[in-house]
Simulated assay, not measured.
Amino acid sequence: MADTPEPAPGDHAGGTGHPDPATEAFVTHRNLLFTVAYEMLGSAADAEDVLQETWLRWTGVELGEVRDQRAYLVRITTRQALGRLRALGRRKESYVGPWLPEPLLTSPDVAEDVELAESVSMAMLLVLETLTPTERAVFVLREVFGLDYSEIAEAVDKSQAAVRQIAHRARAHVAARRPREAVSPAESRDALAAFQRAVQTGDLQSLLDILAPDVVLLTDGGGVKQAALAPIVGAGNVAAVLGRIGGSAPLLPAQVNGCPALIVRLDGEIDTVMAVHLDGGLITGLYAVRNPEKLSHMERETTLRR
């Protein structure tokens, strides 16, 4: 799991070695809370900060007055994430080149949960970027985590009627932009293997065969690493860029955000993480993250939960 807050050494009941109820509840739901924060922010580092803020507020809560600890913790996390999301939006305005979510190395079980995998995929996180902060929070809490409208209303400080309207609007917005058909894990693996072979051999025709005509390549260097400052669009243009990689560096398959991806390592260090988005059997999106500040969660798996 990501480096979310650990209970302090003194957080034990009566020195018995057992965690107190507040610590136990937080640890039980920690992976869920991280996933909520990450889906709202697209940044693991910011999600971890949100969890620390959630923990600090949780320790001041009178547990006897909490009816549903999971819902209460999600509410704290959502409110903290909303505040950070608005600040993150201002940071993105001055970002150099395309901004991509921070990639996470995920375990195979994430890919097996089709809904969870889609919700944390690079493609979906970029769709969520087009929502307002409140729309994003409502969509994530309702569509991904299945919270009741009453719980969401408390989390975003809106009436239930307003939340229902926001949810309807967000669903329609996302539906117009999400993939047209689901791709099975086996199809994803096969497509990734074919893509990997084509890139490593520099086989232009094989690349063109697997790339959709309107494929888009986004590269995020954050102004630190060389990257295209605008999207590269079209199979011919994308294939020309990928063809230059050839055998210059090994490409290692991985599961990133629950989806197929390739990792480029140079001198033992991760240089690039390229997530692949499939639709209709063809690659429609490629998301290459090179900004070193965004690659710290690629050395070990992050546990995501719904």
Results as ranks from 00 to 15, higher is better:
3 D>T: 12
4 T>C: 09
7 P>N: 07
8 A>C: 10
10 G>F: 15
12 H>E: 11
14 G>N: 13
14 G>I: 08
16 T>W: 12
17 G>E: 12
20 D>S: 07
29 H>N: 02
33 L>V: 02
33 L>T: 00
35 T>C: 00
38 Y>M: 05
39 E>A: 01
39 E>P: 02
40 M>E: 06
42 G>H: 03
44 A>V: 08
45 A>C: 08
48 E>Q: 06
50 V>W: 01
50 V>I: 01
50 V>P: 06
52 Q>C: 07
58 W>T: 07
60 G>D: 14
60 G>Q: 09
61 V>Y: 06
61 V>Q: 13
62 E>M: 13
63 L>D: 14
63 L>H: 12
65 E>M: 11
67 R>D: 15
68 D>W: 09
69 Q>H: 14
73 L>H: 04
78 T>W: 02
80 Q>H: 00
80 Q>P: 04
81 A>I: 00
84 R>C: 03
87 A>V: 06
92 K>V: 13
93 E>I: 08
95 Y>D: 09
98 P>F: 10
100 L>Y: 13
102 E>S: 10
103 P>E: 07
103 P>I: 09
105 L>K: 11
106 T>F: 14
107 S>R: 14
109 D>K: 08
110 V>A: 09
116 L>C: 05
123 A>Q: 11
123 A>S: 15
126 L>R: 03
127 V>Y: 07
128 L>H: 13
130 T>N: 13
133 P>W: 05
135 E>F: 01
136 R>L: 00
140 V>R: 00
142 R>G: 02
142 R>C: 05
145 F>K: 00
151 E>C: 08
152 I>P: 05
153 A>D: 07
154 E>S: 11
156 V>I: 05
159 S>H: 15
161 A>P: 14
162 A>D: 12
163 V>G: 05
164 R>L: 11
164 R>A: 10
164 R>T: 15
165 Q>T: 10
165 Q>S: 14
166 I>Y: 05
180 R>Y: 10
183 V>P: 03
185 P>M: 03
189 R>D: 14
189 R>W: 10
192 L>S: 05
195 F>W: 08
195 F>N: 01
199 V>T: 14
202 G>Q: 14
203 D>V: 05
204 L>P: 07
210 I>F: 02
212 A>L: 04
216 V>I: 12
216 V>A: 04
219 T>V: 11
221 G>W: 01
221 G>N: 08
222 G>V: 10
224 V>Q: 15
224 V>T: 13
230 A>H: 13
232 I>N: 00
233 V>E: 09
245 I>G: 06
247 G>F: 06
249 A>P: 09
251 L>M: 13
253 P>N: 02
253 P>C: 04
256 V>S: 06
258 G>A: 06
260 P>Y: 03
261 A>I: 07
263 I>Y: 11
268 G>I: 08
274 M>K: 03
276 V>K: 01
278 L>C: 00
283 I>M: 04
286 L>M: 06
297 H>Y: 14
297 H>R: 08
302 T>R: 00
303 T>L: 13
306 R>S: 02
306 R>Y: 02
